[in-house]
């Protein structure tokens, strides 16, 4: 029951801080697809930005020689907007409560040697100082490298294949999503325990 001293503004701010349940967040994420199509006639897909960033640098490789402003200017703006949205949601309107993690996951991570710290991502792996630990370096640098290599080879990531591609009923995107999950299961259950033991 809400007390009478709680103003509407407090209720609104509390709702904005989250976390939001899947049935609120999921449909809102899905709406990005028609928003981009109707407002810009653009296909949702964020990994292309990694290629555009390569194309900004001078290169002899024809794969990176194209007019990145014309092809990808809009998408780089989306990418920058996402960072701004992250600041808005993660700093200005940050959820003060620690991130809750399912009990069996907490237990499994503890067995692998990692304690849940209530942040969005464990500081033990993703802080600047962890870059100088072996496991932090492997997770950040090898993990990031695989994201960049794999998404371009597959021609898309979670947004381009799993959300946009499946929304368009593209069979290749279903194959890609099968690959995403296969790789993810492999990394979680075989690779990560080895890396966390480093």
């Amino acid at each position: 029951m809400l007390g009478y001293n709680i103003s509407h503004m407090d209720i609104l701010l509390d709702a904005l801080r989250g976390p939001w349940p899947w049935y609120v967040a999921g449909p809102l994420i899905g709406l990005t697809v028609p928003l981009l199509l109707i407002l810009g006639n653009k296909r949702f897909g964020l990994s292309s930005n990694l290629r555009h960033m390569c194309a900004i640098a001078p290169s002899k490789n024809p794969f990176f020689r194209y007019d990145w402003r014309r092809e990808g200017g809009w998408n780089l703006l989306v990418f920058a907007g996402i960072a701004a949205g992250g600041f808005l949601g993660g700093v200005l309107l940050a959820d003060p409560a620690p991130v809750q993690v399912a009990e069996p996951t907490t237990a499994a991570l503890a067995r692998a040697g990692l304690d849940v710290d209530g942040r969005l991502a464990p500081a033990e792996l993703f802080s600047w100082s962890s870059l100088f630990t072996l496991r932090g370096f492997v997770v950040m640098v090898l993990g990031g490298f695989l994201i960049g290599f794999g998404t371009r080879w597959a021609g898309g990531c979670t947004s381009g294949h799993a959300i946009m591609g499946l929304s368009e009923r593209q069979w290749p995107s279903l194959l890609a999503v099968v690959g995403f999950f296969g790789g993810g299961l492999l990394a979680t259950h075989l690779l990560l325990p080895l890396v966390l033991a480093l």
């Binding site: 794999g150 690959g179 995403f180 492999l186």
Partner: peptide
């Protein structure tokens, strides 16, 4: 490619 991305 999808599997490599999944690993990352």
């Amino acid at each position: 490619g999808g599997s490599l991305f999944g690993l990352g």
